[in-house]
Design a protein around this nucleic acid. Structure first.
Lengths: 190, 190
DNA sequence: TGGTGTGGAGAACGATCATTCTCTATCGTA
DNA sequence: TACGATAGAGAATGATCGTTCTCCACACCA
């Protein structure tokens, strides 16, 4: 097995285990066992657990945002419809087997106070998501697209937290309805 | 020192340390040192770390919700204003020194998959908050107060997560503005 | 064929942690 | 004052974890 394949297998195992059970609950030996990569190779690819966690978060960030953007690009019928498609994608995500909330919120709560690198990875993810939503609202004819994007971001995060803790994917519905109301109100200022 | 005082000091130390640094990052010896309660007494009051964590969460739940309800009761000028007062209280909370997000979201992400009791404490907190918000929206003349309460809950959770990760208390502002828009729209169905 | 380096398996190390145990001192009571 | 129970300090225990080290097998090259 070459170093590239080992890296991929390590990140796959890390994502599965860390996301499912939390970071501190998963030892490096579990990563070794689930990836089939020896400990020596593991520490060649990632010199510490923290670097492995950071790499897991950064890869997940990219994949998560690409999946969201792809869905919105493929399913939104208009620029006005795009922000609502975000919540359809969220609902599907919430309903996935093994959904356990936002990996960045979870790892931030667990290690944000201890590890600046993990805290920063979480901030980077949220910033990128905010930029994406601003891109969607900038295409609309509304007075304050940035504030609207911040409101949508608030709904996205809130729905994710509620879906995770309640275990009910329907948490996406009030969020989508709220987003629709905000969009309509932003289009027709009093 | 009697058992009651020991319990109080233990819960005080637990809340300070667990909230600030996360649960798994704080050992029982730290709780002993910061509370001034001996290990023997500690384990008489709480037979395991998990029971201490659960007690910390339940006490924090009550205090947090009472503080919110007191603020809203004291500052809301009308039933229509009450939901917005929630976000003023949130903003003040976000600006507190040592604010580090919602203790229940954090502990859920850290240990929800491992400890059913901690997961349940988080659900209980969110359910109680939802009931409180439903109480506020039930007093309004709106078509669907329960859905409105769920939307407010989504905004509350989202603002809390964003404020924690960004470190910026201003996350309360777009949430409050969104709440105002939703309230106005609920009062005047098209 | 012999030497060298790489990789894997897993033992070893050192630290930390939850929990329990030991020893000693203190205190209320007769 | 003498005794029995209780409490505190902190050592001990047993487990886990991140990380490193040892040992051996195998492949590549002269």
């Amino acid at each position: 097995m070459n170093a590239d394949e080992a890296t991929t297998r390590l990140l796959d195992a890390a994502e599965r285990e860390f996301y499912e059970r939390g970071i501190q609950s998963v030892g490096m030996d579990v990563i070794r066992a689930r990836s089939g990569v020896s400990l020596k190779r593991l520490y060649q690819c990632f010199p510490s657990k923290e670097t492995l966690v950071e790499a897991y978060l950064r890869r997940r960030d990219e994949r998560w945002r690409r999946s969201l953007a792809d869905h919105v690009a493929a399913n939104a019928r208009s620029a006005q419809d795009a922000p609502l498609a975000v919540f359809d994608w969220l609902h599907a995500w919430f309903a996935e087997r093994g959904f356990r909330g936002c990996a960045f919120i979870n790892s931030f709560g667990e290690l944000g106070a201890t590890s600046p690198r993990i805290a920063e990875a979480g901030r980077a993810h949220k910033d990128a998501l905010r930029r994406y939503l601003r891109g969607l609202t900038a295409a609309l004819d509304v007075a304050d697209p940035d504030t609207l994007a911040d409101q949508l971001l608030t709904l996205v995060e809130g729905a994710t937290v509620i879906a995770a803790m309640s275990g009910d994917p329907a948490a996406a519905h009030p969020a989508k309805a709220a987003a629709a109301t905000l969009l309509a109100a932003a289009r027709t200022p009093q």
